[in-house]
């Protein structure tokens, strides 16, 4: 006698062969790796040393693009949250989560390179510069996002709350971008547009010295290729974990 109840009755898509990592992602990974190498060459070799700061300014080619990359990833979180609340499709929540984790990594790269750069130019690893402080607070906000997720048991509630919080958290990212315009007492230089009076460590991007080209290449790599590749991997990982728990549930149901 077989009761008509089992998980297998609930229709579940089950592809015959699940490719853990799609081919396109492998190709993109290769491209990104080459890009990172080429970007390093452009930053460390191709571009001429800065006239006032010397070699240390080269760290800028990673420092700023990494922040833009974090911005892109956090923007993906906001988009993912918005789309999740509209469509209730789990994939958007996965994108949002991937955005937070990748954004945190890139923001950490930005922060660490900034600190390394600050030591010779500002004479300290850490200063209570508004932008620096805000960036640290921004990272903690996204850390709070992860804590919030972890403290909700029900998956639907977790996705919903994460979507709301992820959309609100973008405010902090925007503040980091805007702060040097709002608080004139920052010592952080502004590359595009006028820097504040107190800014220390300013420099001019000299196109003829290959500096603009180096920035352009690294921008493409760190602000576009790296975040997209990492987020894609994170989404693949998430799909695999979800599939695993589904299979486990089915096994337990037997």
């Amino acid at each position: 006698m077989r009761a008509n109840l089992s998980l297998s009755d609930v229709s579940l898509e089950q592809p015959a062969l699940v490719r853990a990592i799609p081919r396109a992602l492998l190709a993109l990974t290769a491209l990104t790796l080459i890009g990172v190498g080429f970007g390093l060459y452009m930053a460390l070799g191709f571009a001429k040393a800065d006239a006032t700061q010397g070699e240390v300014q080269r760290i800028f080619y990673i420092h700023m693009p990494a922040f833009i990359g974090a911005f892109v990833a956090f923007a993906a979180t906001t988009l993912g949250g918005f789309m999740y609340l509209r469509t209730r499709q789990v994939k958007w929540d996965t994108l949002a989560l991937a955005g937070v984790e990748v954004g945190l990594v890139l923001a950490a790269i930005n922060l660490v390179t900034g600190m390394i750069w600050a030591k010779p130019t500002w004479n300290a690893w850490w200063t209570w510069d508004p932008r620096l402080t805000l960036e640290a607070i921004m990272m903690l906000t996204y850390a709070a996002y992860l804590v919030l997720r972890a403290s909700i048991t029900n998956a639907e509630t977790r996705r919903r709350f994460a979507a709301v919080y992820g959309m609100l958290a973008i405010i902090l990212v925007i503040m980091v971008v805007m702060i040097s315009r709002i608080r004139p007492d920052t010592i952080h230089p502004t590359v595009f547009g006028p820097s504040s009076q107190q800014a220390r460590g300013t420099f001019e991007l000299d196109a003829s010295a290959g500096m603009s080209a180096a920035l352009g290449v690294n921008m493409l790599v760190w602000a576009v290729l790296v975040p997209i590749t990492l987020m894609w991997f994170r989404i693949c990982l998430n799909n695999l974990t979800e599939r695993l728990s589904l299979l486990k549930a089915r096994l337990a149901d037997r």
Binding site: I137, M138, A144, A169, I171, L172
Partner: peptide, 8 residues
């Protein structure tokens, strides 16, 4: 933890 940054 979740409110202080957004209250900033």
């Amino acid at each position: 933890v979740v409110m202080l940054p957004l209250a900033l």
